[in-house]
Design a protein around this nucleic acid. Structure first.
Lengths: 212, 212
DNA sequence: TCGTCTAAGACAGTGACACTATCTAGATGA
DNA sequence: TCATCTAGATAGTGTCACTGTCTTAGACGA
């Protein structure tokens, strides 16, 4: 398959494909001659995967690179997932004042949840701490563990469901793809559903409420 | 309070405050003379709110503008929330092929959830449809209602919890702020917690799994 | 074989976004 | 007094994710 065909089949413009090739997001095709390269179904699939992660999940190109690098991870499938989680997590903002405490709070939340398999240096420990730091000082919202507890329970449920739903017939990269797409797609879906559900449920409490 | 003080108290640079003033995100201060304007606690609070929405929730400036406009909404608090939900929702991408079906599927999901108070023209109906459209054709992931059902149940739980948690002592704008900050902050928190939970729970199933 | 098409690869340019900087004229205040 | 600050207008910056242009040269149908 030539690059123009690859472009037609996926809907991704040729210059964008070239860009992804340059960035190492898409493996090189089979170079038949210096002027003819052959692409195949593997490239089509990779391109579709990249587009879903970008368009649905807003994963930055930098994150996609980390994810591609993560596929090289040796060890168990669990190890692979852990590295991929870091790749997918946003880079935490530089700590401001109060990060020490929020980091301790984040660690306490994770411990209390019983998530003892989370690496001590997981990027998301810092992400959680950073979010708590940013909202500290704003009156409404999360002051301590109690406010977060319902979300911990929810996240736990979600994760169990998603891990259980993975298709055992796949190889490690297949499992990784399914996990990542699920994480990204359902994060978006859940956010949207939640806004819809809030619109619905606010009616019962505030449907007649005309307060100033 | 002068603009430099407002900047110090909030940590937002003066040029950024001027930018927000220009964009109408921050109300003008009290103009004592043509060269001296007085800002107060209301401005501090608004600035903190704007920063949380941008830094934690990645709400674009355009969305912040829609939100500010939404505060003018007459009618019930429920009406106010509905307009704010549209303001906070991303603008749906232009429909591609297959949008008709995914839109019908989105509507069916909402109906099946029993969310009959959602406006027929809610922006998030299109957002849900757009996401379903983008992942259609990728083998893993949401094919139909059954895949989405667990997320619908989860969103329903979340929304009930959050609506119930709102402080009844506030005025309509206070309620709106609490709702918005909660939505945005907890969406981020939940996404992070979920990645952490997946790292933990993947250990049980894949901790020894070294498949190729 | 000729002539047109298209590819690879290098590199420059674009557009959106969210600021950030500069400049001017005119107060303010130690 | 005079360095410092202000409002307001306008221009510039940095990042990100592409997108376009150009050159060289193989591919392929007539």
């Amino acid at each position: 398959m030539r690059i123009s065909e690859l472009s037609e089949q996926t809907g991704v413009p040729v210059p964008t494909i070239k860009y992804y090739l340059r960035e190492g997001l898409l493996p090189e095709g089979d170079k038949r001659t210096p002027r003819l390269t052959d692409y195949d179904g593997q490239h089509v699939r990779r391109l579709e995967l990249l587009r879903i992660l970008r368009d649905v999940g807003d994963v930055p190109v930098e994150g996609l690179k980390r994810l591609v690098a993560a596929t090289e991870t040796r060890g168990t499938v669990h190890d692979l997932f852990a590295v991929a989680a870091d790749a997918l997590a946003p880079t935490p903002p530089a700590p401001g004042r109060g990060r020490e405490e929020t980091r301790a709070l984040a660690d306490a939340i994770i411990e209390e949840a019983g998530w003892d398999r989370v690496r001590p240096d997981s990027v998301d420990r810092d992400n959680l701490a950073a979010t708590l730091e940013l909202v500290a000082g704003f009156d409404t919202h999360p002051r301590g563990r109690a406010d977060i507890a319902p979300y911990v329970a929810m996240a736990d449920q979600l994760a169990r469901h998603e891990i259980a739903a993975l298709d055992d017939g796949k190889d490690r990269i297949g499992l990784l793809e399914e996990m990542i797409v699920g994480q990204v797609v359902f994060a978006t879906v859940l956010t949207t559903l939640r806004r819809l559900a809030e619109e619905h449920h606010s009616h019962e409490r505030f449907g007649e409420d005309r307060r100033d």
